[in-house]
Nucleic acid binder design. Structure first.
Length: 592
RNA sequence: GCACCCGUAGCUCAAUUGGAUAGAGCGCCUGACUACGAAUCAGGAGGUUAGGGGUUCAAGUCCCUUCGGGUGUGCCA
């Protein structure tokens, strides 16, 4: 029996082909195949309903006609799949136990699953812009989501065949450097002698500098002048700036290693400082940019809120009235660079939801600009997320007005997980308990952030981020650990082929096997609009099916054929869970 | 003022983008360790999807409206 790797897609295309040759349908008919509620079958097609309505025919009759044609065509082997008409005109597809079992035998390794997924992004050159933190600032709770969501999306794209460049577009050229340099010079600070806590000191120096400016407004002129000096290449200020950037990079690298953030290139805003003039020239030359109140701006009259005749005008400001560049100028220069240097097919930006207007303006501007110049326009998308809020529903701050430091969150995660593992498994060595706590604690934190729809805001709570029960990373990790434990006891390599298995019998075996087939569909759905929570939901459901199976059907039984088939299910579950966890940036464990 | 987003079980969230009887976790109640790891499993109670109107064979999802909350709104990024 030849089974479909991706039944949902296979059914869709077979049915389309059959409909094209069947009277009453047409080329504009789409079957609309999707996974179904298990009580109806494995997949359902609901395209007949809308199509029948549009053409004024009875949907049940039309559905039956399609089923008959499908069976006559011979493309739907009755040994593999059973078709039936239901309700107002749904077509249900129920895969046979033989199909489901054969699927487990044919597709078994991570490489098999990956080869099925590779077509999804097949060789596309994708630049992903993340995590793009600012220099000279300690990472706080607000940096959690870019790092966690960004790495999961990057790993997904990579797994699904993208030719990926992770670009850390750091903010290293902002106006804050004026204040920072002013304060550093005023206090005579030697940046090279700050040691391990250099970033903490820089963070404090900036805060103190800002406070000082509030007290003594005349200092603002000094700061502004320091910035101008820096931008004009003054050697002393450039040297200070380089040290600040270097200190930040060292701190980033340390944090990235803890968070599992991978970066391919780091080209900050400063990299584009000599590339913005071309932007001003080109946008002016094609008549897109114009002067307004001394600044260079772009209007988008076709979008109401960006139109020039609004009561409160809202242009895309690409050069400040003092002649300096800003966020918009460097972003435009960056897109051009990504086209010319990397030949990008797609650019994905990751920021919080509050920047939606900026990206809408950026994309509109780029589209018109590239069209006028005849440049190839990459697909541009803005992947955004909601804010982490405090109990007052405002962006989260502690009582003293500070944000929680990301390092503090990581330490708390490890510490809580260490306590739990020590309680559950006191016999493990301390070193191993620390390793487990790392994966469980940090994994729980990441999973908590990934498992709900990223566009929603949520209220911060330690228990929310560091829960270890229910739909959490430890639940998934625990299932992997139990599978590993079985293979250790049986003395079999979970990666090795298992022979002599009999067909599936119990309901729990079959439910698990069906769930295993859904991995690629889950990846597709996740990739569709880059929402990792779809993958989380799938992995949770898979684990739940495994846990039911584990409790109902003993693996280590005397009957070798039964043992073999259950070991196969364990091995497949282990592979999918490990692969899925790695995609989410969570490290699977041998034991916990 | 204008624009956009949100409101689902006591709490935290799903719902494959318009599909069949709205699902999970936590908490609560009842059971299962002399069975491969109980960080688990089996079961139960808990809903007028903020209110009202409309479109549709079909609405938590689309449209209108009221109420409640959030975000953005010219030189920060």
């Amino acid at each position: 029996m030849k089974v479909w790797f991706n039944p949902s897609k296979a059914i869709e295309s077979e049915l389309s082909a059959i409909a094209a040759e069947t009277e009453g349908f047409g080329a504009d008919f789409t079957p609309g195949v999707r996974p179904a509620d298990p009580k109806f079958g494995d997949y359902q097609a609901n395209g007949v309903l809308g199509f029948a309505k549009k053409n004024g025919v009875n949907p049940r009759e039309l559905g039956q006609k399609l089923i008959d044609a499908a069976i006559t065509s011979g493309r739907f082997d009755p040994e593999m799949v059973e078709l039936s008409l239901a309700g107002p005109g749904f077509i249900n597809f129920k895969l046979s136990p033989a199909f489901i079992w054969q699927w487990q035998l044919d597709f078994s390794t991570k490489a098999d699953y990956q080869s099925g997924a590779k077509a999804l992004k097949g060789g596309r050159k994708i630049i992903i812009d993340y995590p793009s933190a600012n220099t000279a600032k300690q990472a706080h709770i607000g940096h959690l989501r870019p790092m966690v969501i960004g790495q999961a999306i990057a790993r997904l794209l990579d797994f699904c065949g993208a030719n990926l460049v992770r670009d850390n577009h750091i903010g290293d050229w902002g106006t804050n450097f004026g204040t920072l340099i002013m304060k550093i010079k005023r206090d005579g600070i030697d940046l090279s002698s700050l040691g391990d806590d250099a970033l903490v000191t820089l963070d404090q120096l900036y805060k103190d500098g800002s406070a000082l400016e509030t007290e003594q407004p005349e200092l603002r002129d000094i700061s502004r002048n320091e910035l101008v000096l820096l931008q004009n290449g003054d050697p002393e200020n450039t040297a200070i700036w380089q040290q600040i950037v270097e200190i930040s990079k060292v701190a980033f690298d340390k944090l990235f290693a803890q968070m599992g953030v991978e970066v391919d290139i780091t080209l900050g805003e400063s990299f584009y400082r000599d590339k913005v003039d071309r932007i001003y020239d080109e946008l002016s030359e094609i008549g897109l940019a114009e002067e307004s109140d001394g600044a260079l701006v772009v209007w988008h009259d076709e979008v109401k809120k960006f139109a020039r005749d609004n009561e409160r005008p809202y242009p895309f400001n690409i050069r400040k009235s003092d002649g300096a560049s800003n966020y918009a100028s460097t972003d435009l220069a960056t897109i051009l660079y990504r086209l010319e240097e990397f030949d990008a097919d797609e650019v994905i930006y990751l920021t919080d939801a509050r920047q939606q207007d900026h990206f809408q303006q950026l994309f509109l501007t780029t589209k018109k600009w590239f069209q006028a110049k005849g440049y190839k326009l990459p697909e541009l998308s803005h992947v955004f997320w909601g804010t982490i809020l405090g109990a007052d529903k405002k962006p989260f701050k502690t009582k003293s007005g500070e944000s929680i430091k990301l390092q503090e969150l990581l330490d708390e995660a490890r510490s809580r997980a260490f306590d739990v593992v020590t309680e559950k498994n006191p016999d493990l060595s301390e070193a191993e308990r620390h390793e487990i706590a790392e994966s469980v604690g940090v994994g729980a934190m990441k999973y908590a952030d990934l498992s709900s729809n990223r566009t929603q805001d949520y209220v911060f709570s330690w228990d929310r981020l560091l829960s270890f029960e229910g739909n959490t990373a430890p639940y998934l990790l625990y299932a992997v650990a139990r599978i590993n434990s079985i293979f250790r006891k049986v003395g079999v390599d979970p990666e090795a082929p298992i022979e002599g298995a009999s067909q599936l019998e119990t309901d729990t075996e079959q439910a698990l096997a069906r769930k295993l087939m859904g991995f690629v569909t889950a990846l597709e759905l996740t990739l569709n609009d880059l929402r990792p929570h779809f993958l989380c939901t799938y992995l949770y459901e898979l684990t739940s099916a495994y846990s039911s199976f584990y409790n109902a059907d003993k693996v280590m039984v005397d009957d070798d054929a039964v043992k073999a088939r259950r070991l196969i299910l364990c091995a497949r579950t282990r592979t999918v869970l490990k692969t899925g966890l790695e995609l989410l940036g969570i490290k699977p464990l041998e034991r916990m």
